[in-house]
Every structure is written in structure tokens, then in C-alpha cells.
Design a protein around this nucleic acid. Structure first.
Lengths: 105, 105
DNA sequence: TTGTTACCGAACCATATGGTTGACTATATA
DNA sequence: TATATAGTCAACCATATGGTTCGGTAACAA
């Protein structure tokens, strides 16, 4: 999937993950999103655009403000991709546990 | 988590995801991993190092070859982080489905 | 011993990324 | 009307990233 590049790249930044965390509380204006960070609103605006391009949030223009809220699709792309590997590592952990049990630890 | 940056950044590259896909089939030498790609082995070696730093694979020196295999920990970091949002978007989808049902569609 | 294989490391290059400032547009408020 | 607010856009900067080439080293094979 081409979009996986954008999704994972978007998630690889601390600031952007924090923005998504804020949006878990509900929708927020761009200036609200920018407030907690020690950087210009322009910088936050760029981060929001990256998240938007990755399908992780949606923006809605409302008067002179711009409201953002979480979007499921991007997160679902990442989650679906990881699912295959989840079965792998749960099996790996199970094997480890079984191994420890058989050794009597 | 500091390591989440590395994990998601590592996953944001097509080549690196393909390498992980190869390792799903089992362990492989670096030269085997490099074979399918249209790039130098040095480039692939760099990708492998990125994956290793992110805790997504482990390398073992064996003679003059270097064997790689999947490592669960990095993938688990990403999966754990996503889990919170999974509950969010499954709820979001459920709400959408409920909405459509109530409208009689 | 003489290659050959498998890999590393350093230097280099083009482009992407995360940040800034400054000028601008559009909307609300006095 | 004038002014403040919310946000965009373009230019710029430093550093990171993904790739290359070249030279070196350790391990195996002839």
C-alpha cells in the first residue's frame, strides 16, 4: 500500500502523535492544538497537514477557524498491516512461555 | 515512548517493510535479503541497521555471514500504541453502522 | 598462497523534513 | 471604519534520509 508510507511516517513524530492524543479528547481548533507546544503555529499547521495527508485526521473550515478531528482510515491502514505480524509475535511469545514452562521455571 | 519514533520511521519505508516480509518466511542472510532489490547491498545493509535499531529484527554474526530474523519487541511497541486508537475507530465504525441502521438503510 | 565471498565504514550527493520568519487573506469584533 | 484573530503561503535554514562509490577486513575455498 502506497499510503502506508505516509501513515507510518506521520506516526514517527512525537509532536504528531501528541496531536492525535489531543484529538482523542474530541475535536479541536488549530490554535488549540498548537497551544501546548513550544513552536510556532505554522509548524503545527504543517504537522496537521502531514496527518491529514496520511488520512489520520480531517479538517473542516468553519468561519475563520479550522477544526480537526480524528479519522479512522489512516489508523486502520497501519493496524491492518501490523495484524499479520501480531500473529507472528504472539506466537513467538507463546513459544517462549512454553519453553520456560517445559524447563520448569 | 522514545523508541516509537524509530519503530514508525523504520516502518515508513517500502523496502524495509519488504525486508520484514521476507523475514516472515524465516531467517535470512544479508545478501539473501539484498537479492530481490534493485540497489546495492550497502543500501540494504543500512535499511537492516535501521530495522535493528528499532528493535524490529535481530542480527547474529555467524562466520562471515550475518543472519537476520524478526524481533517481536519493536512490533509490539507499535501495536501497543495503536491499540488505544483501535478502540476509538472501532467505536467510530460501530456508531456509523448504528446510525445507518437507525436511518433504515 | 591466492582468490573470492560477505560484509563494514567513510565520504559524498540529492532530496526530504522540521523548524523559523515575514507578508498575506479572510473573518470577527470594537 | 479600524483592529485584532486564525490561518495560509513562500522563502529560507540546518539536519536527516536514502542512495551511491571506493577501499578495507575477516572468513572460507582453490
Amino acid at each position: 500500500m502506497e499510503n502506508l508510507n505516509k501513515v507510518f511516517a506521520a506516526l514517527s513524530d512525537e509532536t504528531r502523535r501528541a496531536i492525535l492524543g489531543q484529538l482523542m479528547q474530541g475535536e479541536a481548533r488549530l490554535s488549540d492544538l498548537a497551544a501546548p507546544f513550544n513552536m510556532t503555529q505554522t509548524a503545527v499547521s504543517k504537522h496537521v497537514r502531514v496527518l491529514s495527508d496520511a488520512g489520520l485526521l480531517v479538517m473542516e473550515k468553519r468561519g475563520r477557524t479550522r477544526h480537526c478531528r480524528l479519522n479512522a482510515t489512516g489508523m486502520k491502514d497501519a493496524s491492518d498491516w501490523l495484524a499479520d505480524y501480531q500473529t507472528f509475535w504472539t506466537r513467538q511469545f507463546d513459544n517462549l512461555a512454553q519453553h520456560l514452562i517445559e524447563e520448569g521455571h
